[in-house]
Design a protein around this nucleic acid. Structure first.
Lengths: 151, 151
DNA sequence: ATGAATGCAAATAGTTTGCACCTAA
DNA sequence: TTAGGTGCAAACTATTTGCATTCAT
């Protein structure tokens, strides 16, 4: 089962469970969404409208919320003032590194940090719900980074 | 030297260095700002206008940016859609825990997490610039938490 | 048939900006 | 005197919402 198939299955299940309707737009948006990695609404809307002109921005916003509720998307906010969404892989978690020069987004996973984090929450008497951990830096990669001046 | 005095000194220095002007508003906003802990612009504006009616919102926004540039404030974003600012204490760093029920903000410092974080950045070939680490949870404190139902 | 989903446009919320007036230096 | 600062209102950006229309069931 491909990630897209898995996501589609989860979405169908969620839609049925909530007594919602299966629509052309929801499938189209899902397909475009699953092709991306950390897409902004703007980017996604552009992609969708390429194949399905006439799709409204409001629908994309509403559908992304639906994806989050269905557990197939995570909302991210990297401080550029717009939300980004990424496909959620079941039982998988990672945080992000962002190059402030070129905008490249890397992912990382640090069990030790996660552990410490739980301890911190506990020490403060909080029941951990979620977290957000982003590292910002510059990627020092002339070739890869679009903002590095080419000689 | 109190924190306020220290901040004022740094601000004056910055203002002089940049050839800017010392104004009544900047001092008033600084004083109100240093009284708070993680104030939103809205809250700060209200405080300032209590003592200095007529102060404009734009001035508060502009002044907070100035504070950040002068190194006496940090901008924070806890996902409630508005920026918050907190006094920067020199050579001190902490991250945050936020109670999603009552909004209480706790601070924490975990050298081990910081260390791992640097290693992660390095492993990905990034020069670490900054980071953001927030833990969200619920504080389980009937008495302290305004959103807990009183019996 | 009928209620939910869509698309558009208008509304919102936080923040920024243009500009005439004011004020520190 | 005069550049920089302030206050107001208008502009902006991302997102949400109201509503008439369309579509899945």
């Amino acid at each position: 089962m491909t990630p897209l198939e898995a996501a589609r299955a989860r979405l169908e299940r969620h839609i049925d469970a909530q007594g919602m309707k299966h629509t052309r737009q929801r499938v189209q948006i899902l397909e475009a969404f699953m092709r991306g990695r950390h897409v902004s609404v703007e980017e996604l809307l552009r992609d969708v409208q390429n194949e399905a002109p006439g799709t409204g921005a409001a629908t994309v916003y509403r559908t992304l919320k639906l994806f989050v509720e269905a557990g197939i998307a995570h909302e991210r906010n990297f401080g550029d003032g717009q939300a980004r969404y990424e496909p959620a892989v079941e039982d998988e978690h990672h945080d992000h590194l962002i190059c402030t020069d070129c905008g490249t987004i890397f992912e990382f996973e640090e069990p030790e940090i996660e552990t410490r984090q739980s301890q911190v929450a506990e020490a403060h008497g909080l029941s951990l719900r979620s977290h957000r951990h982003e590292i910002y830096g510059t990627c020092n990669r002339r070739e890869a980074c679009p903002r590095w001046p080419r000689s």
